[in-house]
Design a protein around this nucleic acid. Structure first.
Lengths: 140, 140
DNA sequence: GTATTTGCAAAGTTTTTGCACGTGG
DNA sequence: CCACGTGCAAAAACTTTGCAAATAC
């Protein structure tokens, strides 16, 4: 039995095809909105509804099997929690997304956060700004 | 003529009572959602519509007269750009908001961001996590 | 068998848009 | 005057919810 199956059962939830499909779609897509995940699942099977996608994402997020971050000012995006935990730098100009390993971001923020007794959620952290190209264009 | 009036005119926009009211409400409220700003303005005058609040907030944000950040997973909140630029630490447990001066956050992130040629928007940055109280409760 | 989960449809929330009227410069 | 801005109402985008039928275990 794989880890996600174990975790679902251990928390008193059931293994359903829909949950497996949603989890697979999130892992396949990298960073995706609920709508994109729904579309991806639909290409593989008709057997799912958008509300189920929302409910499933919420559940998988609670269980820590996936994570979400806010890569735009609007929709949340979900990604696998299987890989390394990471933060994001997002360019407002070109929407480039740079992933930063947790260790790097933790190294940068630990002292500041610690001074306030605060424990950051690195996997959820998104820093908006400008990438080098867009910063250069803006200053010209 | 005050600064905000100058900036509006200089960018080819007009001085209207609605814009003055929205700006005053944002400065009075600290951190507020569009809805809260609308409610605040309504207590002072009937002469405004919710769509105008949205359009005005967008304009004032573009002009740099106000700023917005995401203090919850949902609604954006607007605040004055007149005070010192700052980032936020937000506790997921109790929703406490800790403001961090730009200099402190910049000190923490400069090296990391610079390594990627990235220029962070400190005034928009929100770090979610747990405050000391909630972190302690969670670990018990 | 039965408690959980899903599909469906409907409603809720938040934000945007088109257009005629109003108004600042 | 007249281009810009506003109110209004409608729609769009996104998410949640109630309930009966389906299903994991």
């Amino acid at each position: 039995m794989t880890d996600w199956q174990t975790r679902l059962r251990a928390s008193g939830h059931r293994l359903t095809p829909q949950r497996e499909l949603v989890l697979a779609a999130v892992e396949a897509l990298g960073h995706a909105t609920p709508d994109e995940i729904y579309a991806e699942v639909r290409t593989r099977s008709e057997a799912i509804n958008l509300s189920t996608v929302y409910r499933t994402l919420e559940l998988l997020d609670e269980l820590g099997l996936i994570r979400h971050a806010h890569l735009t000012d609007r929709a949340p995006t979900y990604h696998s929690a299987a890989g390394h935990e990471h933060s994001h730098l997002v360019c407002r100009g070109c929407h480039e997304v740079i992933s930063i390993g947790r260790e790097s971001m933790e190294g940068a923020l630990t002292a500041l956060a610690g001074a306030h007794g605060f424990v950051p959620d690195y996997g959820h952290l998104t820093v908006f700004g400008s990438c080098s190209d867009c910063a250069r264009k803006a200053s010209e």
